[in-house]
Design a protein around this nucleic acid. Structure first.
Lengths: 122, 122
DNA sequence: CAAACATATGAACACTTATTCATATGTACA
DNA sequence: TGTACATATGAATAAGTGTTCATATGTTTG
């Protein structure tokens, strides 16, 4: 979504906390880095893609297998695999007419684990 | 988005890979768990919220400070802080008319770190 | 080469979501 | 108590997104 940040009205407490705000501002990573980070998490933010990643963490699978496993259309799975591939989270190899997908990254499980730890803490 | 999964047409390769598909199906976590996990990552999947979390990881801040820091309206920040609070990622304390927000969770930095590791790997 | 199968892709649609605007709520202080 | 400040919130709107449908591409096999 395009965000048209508008200049905000200054408030008084900003003046009081000026030092803190400036210190944080100096430490903030580049705009682009934070944007990329959000884009990555956005890919994890869909239950279909989460399921696909989880499945592929168990075993390499072809598009059709995943579709059957998740009870979804081949087209829907294919579209999502493209998103995952663009995010470099999965890779594919072709064997005849069948295309096998697998995880392209060993961070996936770690990211999952931290997420799970959070939601399990009530 | 509401997903109206439709029954998919069976494919041949599913029959071939039946054992694998069934094995993965047995290991899959509960539907609800994966849904919650996706919901959590969805919260991380917005650059405004990422910036807020990053800022709060540096220092406790009030709504107005964050608005100034990110050059956004107080309203926009307040809306996003609500999302973060509902996800139990931030907590707040009131001191007079000022409400200070801070991280409610020490996983945030770890989740960030893994995300960064991924995007930094080209 | 034709037919069947596996996958990919573009357009359309319904649904979701982030911001803005207006305004309400809560607090301090004169 | 009234005014100013800090924050919260509901409605509206524009932009984004996931699935479906139709169809294209690529591969194997007869």
């Amino acid at each position: 979504m395009a965000k048209k940040y508008e200049q905000i009205e200054k408030c008084d407490c900003d003046v009081i906390h000026q030092d803190i705000v400036n210190a944080v501002k100096d430490k903030m990573p580049r705009e682009e880095t934070l944007y990329d980070l959000a884009e990555l998490f956005k890919v994890f933010g869909d239950s279909t893609r989460i399921k696909i990643l989880w499945a592929l963490d168990e075993s390499e699978m072809c598009v059709c297998d995943i579709a059957v496993l998740l009870n979804m259309t081949q087209s829907a799975i294919s579209h999502q695999l493209r998103v995952l591939k663009q995010a470099k989270l999965v890779k594919s190899r072709r064997e005849g007419k069948i295309v096998y997908y697998s995880l392209d990254d060993d961070h996936v499980r770690q990211i999952f684990d931290h997420g799970l730890t959070h939601i399990n803490e009530e």
